[in-house]
Structure formats: structure tokens, C-alpha cells
Design a protein around this nucleic acid. Structure first.
Lengths: 143, 143
DNA sequence: ATAATAAAAGACTAAAAACTCTTTTATTAT
DNA sequence: ATAATAAAAGAGTTTTTAGTCTTTTATTAT
């Protein structure tokens, strides 16, 4: 469904969102431990998301990654779009370049509904929102 | 959604199903042209599907790939499983190894529905079935 | 000011996916 | 029987994705 990079990105952002509730910046090392990802790899990914404005960061002691009220409104769809692009939401299921509503491939209509469902689900989940119900499932973000 | 290999596989199988209606075996060259794929690559893929019994083949002059009444009942889900495995249908959306109904990740329930939808759609589409409506959309299998 | 800390940047390696080429084997028409 | 045909098999290469390592830059506490 998503690239590995994108899976790590989502997990990291959820992790950072948790910590940001208690107004604490979290370092790459802690994030990597928290979500079970390679340390340098998640660093690269977060640098990318940071450049794109989806997460905030501060260098130096007490520095790290964090989210403010604005970035907490970021949806999972935003993250997926930033990392994997939007082919999951709009591309043809069979990889056909010229497939469209006007010239549909044999599976176009079936896939359209599925793609819309995926988008709706991801678009309706904001990082700041599922913090509460997440408290229960803490510790399930790794491996 | 699917690997490129899997996209080619589905397109090729649909193409072969069309031709098999008129009881004609179709060669790799023709398939590659028909679906807009690299010739040697689709050959490899079909060899794999042939070994797994999803498509039939015959060597030599007038040889090629074809489907009989049994293999025409093959569903798109069968093809996807044969090529990409079943991680799309059963894996965790966030790539978490130990995510399950009992220990769900933050997105488990949302994704469960989506994955089931995808499976149902692919499982309910048999190669032999959508031949008729396909006749209209012939020529949309490439590029 | 300085040392310690932590992200940013960039260059690199490893593994997987996508794709190619050549040789072998099976089939069929002559 | 033989030559032509077409898939099977296997060993490549290329490209993309995943992951690592080292150096630089910004920030903060002392």
C-alpha cells in the first residue's frame, strides 16, 4: 500500500504527535527507538518532512522534532502525499497512463471507489486528533 | 497498490482471456504489443504464472499462452496473490509485524475495511467474466 | 566565548525490483 | 527426420528503494 519510507514517516509523525501533547521536543534517537526504525533513515525522512513544513524542528540541546497547533492539523493523507505522491489516490490500478473516467480501463470504476475510500480515511485522520485513543495503544508503534 | 510486475501480469491475463474466447493461443510478442510491456519481462512473468498453473502454454509453432475453462475461472485476487503475495490483503497498513485484531495499531480498524473491500473486488472478478464488457474497452490495456 | 548537543546535508553502500540477453528445450509443419 | 517456431530457463544489467556513515551548521547551557 505505502512505501516503507512512508510507513516509517506515518509512525514517526504519530509518535511525535504524542510527545508534542506534553510540549516536549523529541530527538531522532528516541523516535527511532519508539517506532523501531533505523535511526539515520528516519532522520532523512524527517528532514524531508521538515523541509516541506509538515513537522517542526530545532537544533542544539533540548532540540528535536515537534508539532504545533498548525502542524497537528496535518492529516495522514498529507504525509502520504508528501512521501509517496498521489498515485495511490489518483493513479490507475493497472498502471495505465491514459486511463480516466472518459476512457476507463476494465477495472477503473471498481478501483475508483476503493481509492476514494482510502483517501477519505487518510484525509479524515488528523495527527492531533487520534492522540487520545492512541494512549491506549501506545507501544504498538514498533516492529 | 500493486507492483509493476503485478500490473503487467493482470493486463496480460486479461489480454490472453480475450484471445482465448476465440480459442487462439497468443505469443509473447503479441501480448507485449497488446499491453505495452517489455517483451522479455512479460515472458518471465508469464513463465512464473504458468508454473503456478494460472495460465497454460504450448511451445513451438502455433504455440503460445492460453486459458481453458478452468483457468478462465481464475480471479484477479489469485493473480495478485501469486505475484505480490497477500500482504495487501492481510498486512498492517503501517507495516507493523505484530499488529492484529487483538493488538491493533492506531489505524488497524480503518484499514481492515479497506483491505477487505480490495479483496472482495479482486476476488469477485474472474478472468472469464469481464470479457464481454471488455470488448468495448479493447485497446485500453496499453500504456 | 566555549563546549556540548542535535538536526541538516551530502556522499555513500546494500538490497530489491525492473528489465535484458542468450541458450536450451519442446512442438509442429513440412 | 528436419527446420522453423515459440516458450522455458538462467544469467546477466539497470534503476529504484532502503539504509548507512561522515561532516557541517545551528542552538543552548555553562
Amino acid at each position: 500500500m505505502f512505501s516503507k519510507t512512508c510507513e516509517y514517516a506515518i509512525r514517526a509523525m504519530i509518535f511525535i504527535a504524542q510527545q508534542s501533547k506534553s510540549d516536549v521536543r523529541v530527538g531522532v534517537k528516541e523516535i527511532a527507538r519508539g517506532i523501531g526504525s533505523p535511526e539515520h533513515f528516519i532522520a532523512k525522512i524527517l528532514q524531508d518532512l521538515s523541509r516541506k513544513g509538515l513537522v517542526l524542528s530545532l537544533k542544539g540541546p533540548t532540540g528535536g522534532f515537534y508539532l504545533d497547533n498548525k502542524t497537528l492539523k496535518c492529516t495522514l493523507a498529507d504525509i502520504v502525499k508528501a512521501i509517496d505522491g498521489d498515485k495511490l489516490f489518483s493513479g490507475c490500478g493497472l498502471g495505465l497512463e491514459y486511463c480516466s473516467d472518459a476512457k476507463p480501463c476494465p477495472l477503473h470504476h471498481e478501483f475508483k471507489k476503493i481509492r476514494e475510500d482510502i483517501y477519505k480515511t487518510l484525509q479524515s485522520t488528523k495527527l492531533g486528533e487520534f492522540n487520545d485513543q492512541l494512549a491506549k495503544s501506545i507501544g504498538f508503534l514498533k516492529r
